[in-house]
């Protein structure tokens, strides 16, 4: 009985420590974003509540934060939808059609996902310059589709292989083409899996930094991570209040999505990494 109590206390203490480690940076981010003076922790200053940072980040057009946010959402959204649909077509072929070398394709996709971005981005820059796409949505969307494909393929392959093959067989007997089986049978059945894969792909693209850093140059195409990383004050000092407010505004939707879809994100990640 006593051993059980000790164990419970130890676990509770561990969980509190773990949660403080995971969440402390967010609290600091939010408190700083609400402070008139970002130096409120130094002995000379103190905390004074204000919403100024939020209003300047949202309404001051010269900061371009809303532009960055819009660019990020459009680029990541389009890449996630296009990438997952492309992966779904490939996963359909790999799991349900006679296809010699399907394992080779899967391992190839895995190897591709381990390529360092730095060995892709140099030539990508030349390619995009040649196409005249630098600093446009195209410069990011196409590479992002390719970037989310391996992960999406692995997750969807794992989901698709669990759908009973009898479904397809019945459809073929009724005279459906393969494309019809994919669009009319498999996709509707797998819709929840496809949507949660899209969410993961979106998070992946939304997180991407190096491509966006090199392939964009200003607020016409620059994404939020790059925008916040390069945020500088006019007179050299770092505008911490604005940066933390911008970070908080970006973080909030991600936090809400994570809380709502936590189960699906975890299922997708473990499918992509462990089962796959």
């Amino acid at each position: 009985m006593r051993e059980e109590t000790v164990k419970t206390i130890l676990i509770a203490a561990g969980i509190i420590l773990m949660l403080s480690f995971c969440l402390a940076p967010f609290f600091f981010m939010i408190v700083t974003s609400l402070s008139k003076n970002p130096e409120f922790l130094s002995p000379a200053a103190n905390f004074k509540l204000t919403l100024e940072n939020y209003s300047s980040v949202i309404f001051k057009e010269s900061l371009h934060f809303i532009d960055y946010l819009r660019n990020s959402i459009i680029v990541s959204g389009v890449s996630a939808v296009a990438g997952v649909l492309t992966a779904a077509v490939a996963a359909f072929a790999i799991t349900r059609l006679k296809l010699p070398g399907k394992m080779l394709i899967l391992f190839f996709a895995l190897a591709v996902s381990m390529f360092p971005q730095i060995s892709i981005v140099g030539y990508l820059f030349k390619l995009m310059t040649w196409m005249g796409w630098i600093n446009t949505y195209f410069a990011l969307t196409f590479p992002y589709v390719a970037w989310v494909l391996p992960l999406s393929l692995w997750i969807l392959t794992s989901y698709f292989s669990q759908i009973p093959k009898e479904l397809d067989r019945a459809a073929y007997v009724d005279g459906c083409s393969r494309l019809k089986v994919l669009t009319k049978i498999i996709m509707p059945v797998a819709m929840p899996a496809v949507l949660s894969t899209m969410l993961l792909a979106f998070i992946f693209a939304f997180n991407e930094f190096m491509f966006a850093l090199i392939l964009t140059s200003d607020h016409h195409a620059r994404t939020v991570p790059v925008g916040i990383a390069l945020f500088q004050g006019l007179h050299g000092e770092i505008p911490w209040g604005d940066i933390m407010a911008a970070s908080a505004v970006t973080t909030l939707p991600v936090v809400i999505l994570t809380i709502i879809f936590q189960r699906r994100i975890i299922a997708g990640l473990t499918r992509g990494a462990v089962k796959g």
Partner: peptide, 18 residues
């Protein structure tokens, strides 16, 4: 579980600024 997952979901460039 969600609280532990959140640091993973935030773009590293943004959390690195914090």
């Amino acid at each position: 579980w969600a609280a532990v997952l959140i640091p993973w979901a935030i773009p590293s460039a943004i959390s690195a600024r914090t």
